[in-house]
Design a protein around this nucleic acid. Structure first.
Lengths: 196, 196
DNA sequence: GAATTATAATACTCGTGAGTAATATATTAT
DNA sequence: ATAATATATTACTCACGAGTATTATAATTC
């Protein structure tokens, strides 16, 4: 019979992190509603009230995971887009590098990615922000003459996000293709088209 | 005080259709778990047991909507791809036409589309099937020399599905762009690329 | 017109899962 | 040492929403 009260060597920070980690796995694999707090605490070897020491509610822990993803992704994209070392010769490489960065991040954080990019209500908002950043950059490069002038960069940016979204699901997160290769294929397709 | 028993002019088929229609709206707008049977029956002016005259369960009515979407979409895509009138001069137009058909269907069935293409567990499967059909056709055209030989058509097909998925959400279902225009933009981008 | 079938309402049950009250033990601060 | 604080458990509550037992009336069939 397990005793009550604080355990020897108990450490709140670690418990909290563990719960976050397990919650990410559960949400990612089973979705929000199918995920039970009871399952999370079982897997963490903790009782239910302990969970509520660290998180206000089920909503709150989910939102925290979304926020982490959102913040990390935004930081990444903004940094990535600041390196506007626009040299004609390396344009393809530049763009490929940016997209590789995104894929790499997604691959390193598959659970957060599924949560923040696919499951959250906020996903729409997050994707729109990414698309908007990409659009800005593309427009600049378009004005500098790198791209055809008759292309609607809003559509291109949204399309690119759509491609990333889908290939992340079908190839990247299944471990079928590496970030670099995926980025390369996409960029070549979008830059040069399919016509022989 | 409402009386019990069968009402004058009561018609099961119509009631069933009405419930399906309302359920589609509710699922589409609020998602599966947020949708309550109690809300559906209220909106349909029916009591809860009446609902269960027509549908086995909440799962069942949702699945029925998914099946309708799936079946309609598959029929559309298969027909669309059978018109393999491969003429070099009209290739662009052919492809644009196929994609327009898909967008038009989505626009006409926004609720079913959100349910079957975005919310259902089966969505993955459905999209994969579409991608697979597209891939097959592209490969054929590639072998006929219309497209560059060094392109991985699996990636292209998946990308196209991703683009369709995203633009449907952000532009089409918001009524911002017409099917034809959207299809045109995409096809030109994918065929000729962005480089000036 | 009697029996059968289809459609409907009233008034329930019942499981499930989020969240809590009360209490106990370890750790840290004074 | 003692008070205060952090971490933990046992044993609950409670709302919510899916689904049902029972009964009643209209439509249809024989």
């Amino acid at each position: 019979m397990a005793k009550r009260g604080r355990k020897k060597g108990a450490n709140g920070e670690k418990r909290r992190s563990l719960l976050l980690l397990i919650a990410a796995e559960e949400f990612s694999n089973n979705g929000y509603h199918e995920t039970k707090i009871s399952t999370i605490v079982q897997r963490a070897n903790v009782t239910q009230p302990s969970f509520y020491l660290y998180f206000q509610s089920k909503e709150a822990i989910f939102q925290e995971l979304v926020d982490i993803f959102h913040q990390k992704l935004m930081t990444l994209v903004q940094q990535s887009l600041l390196e506007t070392g626009l040299e004609k010769s390396t344009l393809e490489g530049e763009i490929t590098g940016r997209i590789t960065n995104i894929f790499t991040f997604f691959k390193e954080q598959p659970d957060l990615t599924r949560i923040g990019f696919y499951m959250a209500n906020e996903s729409r908002e997050i994707k729109s922000q990414i698309a908007s950043q990409i659009e800005q950059n593309l427009r600049e490069e378009q004005m500098n003459g790198y791209f055809r002038a008759d292309i609607d960069m809003h559509t291109v940016a949204e399309s690119l996000v759509g491609i990333i979204e889908r290939l992340t699901e079908t190839k990247l997160l299944k471990g079928l293709t590496k970030p670099e290769k995926l980025a390369n294929e996409i960029v070549r397709l979008l830059l040069y088209g399919m016509i022989s």
